[in-house]
Design a protein around this nucleic acid. Structure first.
Lengths: 216, 216
DNA sequence: CCAGAAATGTTGACGGCGTCCACATAGTGT
DNA sequence: ACACTATGTGGACGCCGTCAACATTTCTGG
């Protein structure tokens, strides 16, 4: 077993990667993961059984597609909040990046956050849970910073957990609604910022005396 | 063609309903819709082809399952907000009912709000779009009432649309996260209320004399 | 009341798919 | 050099969605 840098390949040449890329391509093209494993094999120019040397079953290939997505999402999020000092701004930027990733990756996003990967043997796809936690952690860190600065409203850890959950729910929900075309509103980059602002300020009217306080 | 009350049945006895109920049962049991049409037929005690007299293809059966779900969701929501005067309370109650429905119906909820039904020919499953709009409309009405009372922060229709979208995103996202087990937090009836409260109040600390005035 | 016509259900067939098995081939370590 | 393992191929099985042909029951118009 080679432990050093990948030895190129045996027969085909890093078939595993080719398969994953082909699967990603199909997901992006068809906007669903209803393709057959045999089709992926055809695209890769191998026999219908070759994929089984790399993925015990179809779901494992899908999991690999999802895994790549999670990495990309993590990168996009960290990059978005990088260097932003204000927790409020950072939160909005994070949300923007998150939603944008979802819009761009449509079907893959749904694959990542669906239960599709949990059907057969592996009840809980550890990969997904872990990756989701990591995304939430990025949000949680920003919120924790805001709480520490006294800018965000949480007096204990429980309350902060609610804030984090609310933020996650809103970005995830907004992304899903937009992807599935379930909202009348069209996506524009400023849309997620506006929703993020609402999340920060709340729905209820602030400080009666000075009304038009909320900026967008 | 009989126009009056259903004439019982022809051969089997309202097979259409039996099929939908069997499908619902399987979805609830397996928590996914990977079952075969043939299995549904077996459950109903008919030949593998009988369903085709009622549903042109498998997706149509799934759509019927989703449709029933939308009706139930609508009932639950209207019932939840019925008689509640305060827009704030009503919004929280609506959210509670929504999330609870999702938790109880798990897989069906995901089926209802996924793009699964839009794959083959019918690009946009009118049924889904319409039903989703109806759910959103219930929320929108409550929010509109709050705005009219001056309790909710929206100075024009565009801003109100953002409030509605935010609310929809939050409840939808929370429901999805909980269904898919993607949150560390466990569902309790009070959880959705707390998130709803956050949605109302916002994340940013209130009652600062000069509210952080950030523009994006 | 009765002959189509329409609705509904059954049987059979076809191609495609996921997966298992046996076999072929190509690199690896000793 | 040689066994071993990793990788790819070809064939087979059973299941599935769907189409077509046929059977049966119910409805409808005369």
């Amino acid at each position: 077993m080679p432990v050093s840098s990948k030895p190129a390949a045996y027969h085909h040449g890093d078939l595993k990667r080719v398969l994953v890329e082909a699967a990603c391509a199909i997901v992006a093209e068809e906007q669903n993961w209803d393709f057959s494993l045999r089709e992926v094999a055809r695209r890769a120019g191998v026999s219908h059984n070759a994929p089984y040397r790399h993925f015990p079953e179809k779901l494992d290939l899908l999991a690999a597609v999802a895994a790549e997505g999670f990495i990309a999402l993590g990168v996009a999020m960290t990059k978005a909040a990088d260097g932003v000092e204000s927790p409020e701004e950072a939160l909005v930027e994070l949300g923007n990046a998150y939603v944008k990733f979802g819009i761009i990756n449509g079907a893959r996003y749904r694959l990542m956050f669906g239960t599709v990967l949990a059907s057969s043997k592996t009840k809980a796809p550890a990969l997904v849970l872990e990756a989701a936690s990591r995304s939430q952690a990025i949000l949680a860190n920003v919120i924790a910073a805001g709480v520490k600065k006294g800018q965000f409203a949480a007096s204990d850890d429980d309350e902060m957990a609610i804030l984090v959950l609310s933020a996650c729910s809103t970005v995830h929900g907004l992304t899903m609604l937009l992807i599935d075309g379930l909202s009348d509103v069209e996506y524009t980059p400023s849309l997620s910022a506006k929703v993020g602002q609402t999340l920060l300020s709340g729905i209820v009217q602030r400080s009666r005396s000075t009304i038009t306080q909320q900026a967008v």
